[in-house]
Amino acid sequence: MKVIFLKDVKGKGKKGEIKNVADGYARNFLFKQGLAIEATPANLKALE
């Protein structure tokens, strides 16, 4: 799953980066902790 990092995550990505991560890791950790959001077209446009 492609995500946009909202904060730096050690070993995974830095704020503003778009990367592929495992679906479960994204849903169960990154999204719940507020560290990333899904890289949807609307979210990508908002990032610009």
Rank of each mutant, 00 (worst) to 15 (best):
M1E: 04
K2H: 09
K2L: 14
K2G: 05
K2R: 15
V3Y: 00
V3P: 01
V3S: 00
V3H: 00
I4Q: 02
I4V: 09
I4R: 02
F5V: 00
F5T: 00
L6Y: 01
K7F: 14
K7I: 11
K7S: 11
D8G: 06
D8R: 07
D8L: 04
V9M: 05
V9W: 05
K10E: 14
K10R: 14
K10H: 13
G11L: 05
G11T: 05
K12P: 01
K12Q: 15
K12T: 13
G13S: 04
G13M: 04
G13Q: 02
G13A: 12
G13L: 02
G13E: 02
G13K: 01
K14A: 09
K14R: 14
K15F: 05
K15L: 08
G16V: 01
G16N: 07
G16T: 02
G16W: 11
E17Q: 12
E17T: 06
E17I: 04
E17P: 00
I18N: 01
I18K: 02
I18S: 03
K19Q: 09
V21E: 04
V21Y: 06
V21R: 00
V21G: 00
A22H: 12
D23F: 14
D23I: 15
D23Y: 15
D23Q: 13
D23H: 14
D23G: 14
D23L: 15
G24H: 14
G24D: 14
Y25L: 08
A26P: 01
A26N: 03
A26Y: 13
R27F: 10
N28S: 09
N28K: 14
F29I: 13
F29Y: 14
F29S: 06
L30M: 04
L30G: 00
L30W: 03
L30A: 01
F31N: 01
F31A: 02
F31E: 03
F31Y: 06
F31M: 08
K32W: 08
K32Q: 09
K32G: 06
K32A: 13
K32V: 14
Q33S: 10
G34E: 06
G34S: 07
G34D: 06
G34R: 08
L35Q: 04
L35D: 03
A36F: 01
A36P: 00
A36M: 01
A36R: 00
A36W: 01
I37H: 04
A39Y: 11
A39S: 04
A39W: 10
A39P: 02
T40W: 03
T40D: 05
P41Y: 11
P41K: 09
P41G: 08
A42R: 09
A42Y: 07
N43F: 06
N43V: 08
N43A: 11
N43R: 07
L44H: 04
L44Y: 04
L44G: 03
K45V: 11
K45N: 11
K45Q: 13
K45R: 13
K45E: 14
K45P: 05
K45H: 11
A46Y: 13
A46E: 10
A46D: 10
A46T: 11
L47D: 05
L47A: 08
L47R: 07
L47T: 08
L47M: 13
L47S: 07
E48P: 07
E48W: 08
E48L: 14
